[in-house]
Design a protein around this nucleic acid. Sequence first.
DNA 1: CGGTTAATCAACCGATAGGTTGAGAGTACC
DNA 2: GGTACTCTCAACCTATCGGTTGATTAACCG
Lengths: 111, 111
Amino acid sequence: MTTADPISGVFAALADPTRRAILARLASGEATVNELAEPFPISLQAISKHLNVLERAGLIARTREAQWRRCRIEPAPLRDIAGWVEQYRRLWEERYDTLGGYLDDLQKEQS
Amino acid sequence: MTTADPISGVFAALADPTRRAILARLASGEATVNELAEPFPISLQAISKHLNVLERAGLIARTREAQWRRCRIEPAPLRDIAGWVEQYRRLWEERYDTLGGYLDDLQKEQS
DNA sequence: CGGTTAATCAACCGATAGGTTGAGAGTACC
DNA sequence: GGTACTCTCAACCTATCGGTTGATTAACCG
């Protein structure tokens, strides 16, 4: 991630399976850091770093509550990703599911 | 990307703005490596590396044609990403009603 | 054959990612 | 106040990323 491009940060955050698992957990409700860390075989500090990445990407928000940090998912960046991918929908939606017809039809589309 | 998890590779590939620009270019038709490299201020070798990343992620395919390698986009991984993001759609549809029509509008705008 | 063009391979480099351990800050509870 | 618990900060380490330059493979052309 060379640039400060926000969408790059979202994709980069989603590129890690641990972070996707954390998001999946948060999709079913808020959780504290320890609760999020529990399923993983890595240190709490590593989880804290993952949460930093998710937070900088805008994918989660943390609120402090006594000694706990409660984390919740923030869906806006996911919506952005969905919008980005949507640009390419026609490539698999219209017509070609077989590789055979794909090349021919793409060629035709060009001319 | 610690694991061999295929979807992680796709997200990682999409995390780079140069690679996303290459995909955008390929969405409008096939191109050779030199054609793809032309808009960027970096070396051809760097572009070649980016194409390797995209190819390993399944996002493009390369066919050799005389001395040229013709690149084309492979939409299947993008469809997978769309499917993955879809899991979270309710999070912004249920909680953030004001954004409800976003995707519909985007759809309209594209066509 | 020799020269040119297209693209990759290979080695290297600085920066960053993801993990560790150890220490520290903030809050609750007795 | 002392102790326990929750979480972050800081330093460090290794591997990977994104870029460079230089050499190499492969095909075409005169």
